[in-house]
Design a protein around this nucleic acid. Structure first.
Lengths: 129, 129
DNA sequence: AGGATAGTAAGACAGTTTGTCTGATATGTC
DNA sequence: GACATATCAGACAAACTGTCTTACTATCCT
């Protein structure tokens, strides 16, 4: 059957957003932020979601401290990249070029075109990272 | 709980690819293409997938003919657009700009930069379509 | 006309995924 | 030692997704 699960689930994504915005956090901190006034059940939910994120290597758990601290191993831009590649794989035979051209052709104001051109100029100067 | 289902499923996407590449098709034609040598079960599977795609308005069913003919209502580029917007909504507060800059910054050869610049030039000439 | 053939229609079904929760067990503090 | 708070392990139901069965209808052929 081979279904393809989501890379990061909606509920998991909420945690990632928190970790991205507020740095390494504990389960307690995450629970308070995402389920204000939540009880032990919500705490456990956050814990389970973090466990799954850790399994998928989207999150790192620091076990040295007694109370574990979690941090994102993939940043926002990294996740954007993975999802873009996924679109490319499924719809563009793996190439990102059609996506880029879709975006450029799609909806780009004159101002955006200008800043985009400038961005390309910078890349010309900085040959390769 | 509110899980968000996929816009187009993997199995459904296979049908879309076929419809994009080979124009309007019947269930039989789709079955033969995707499940070569498939029996009535596979036929029914294709039928069910088409029914779901029709419900989601990704496919149009022509019922005038006795044997229904199916065609895509969203083209490849359209689906790319929807998925890009979905990424933007979940990761960039709805804006496509960060995605564009990700792609441009990411991995772009000198040649690609050149053709991209040319593409922008064309857009400057063709003010707004 | 009558039966084989092929189509549509409706829904059952199981395996996963995903969000949520419960209970058991440690660990540290006062 | 009691208590609050952690971790750990796993149960659970709802929904999603791919697949299949069955019933019914229309067409074609000799």
């Amino acid at each position: 059957m081979a279904r393809t699960p989501q890379d990061v689930t909606d509920a998991e994504l909420a945690l990632m957003h928190q970790l991205w915005d507020a740095g390494p956090l504990t389960i307690r901190q995450l629970t308070d932020a995402l389920y204000p006034g939540g009880g032990p059940s919500q705490y456990a939910t956050v814990q389970k979601l973090l466990e799954r994120l850790e399994d998928k290597d989207y999150v790192l758990r620091d076990r040295r401290t007694n109370i574990h601290v979690f941090s994102a191993t993939v940043d926002r831009d990294g996740l954007i990249g993975r999802r873009l590649q996924s679109i490319a794989d499924k719809l563009c035979e793996g190439s990102l070029a059609p996506i880029l051209s879709h975006l450029v052709k799609g909806n780009l104001s004159a101002k955006e075109r200008l800043s985009l051109r400038k961005l390309i100029d910078e890349l010309d100067d900085t040959p390769r990272r």
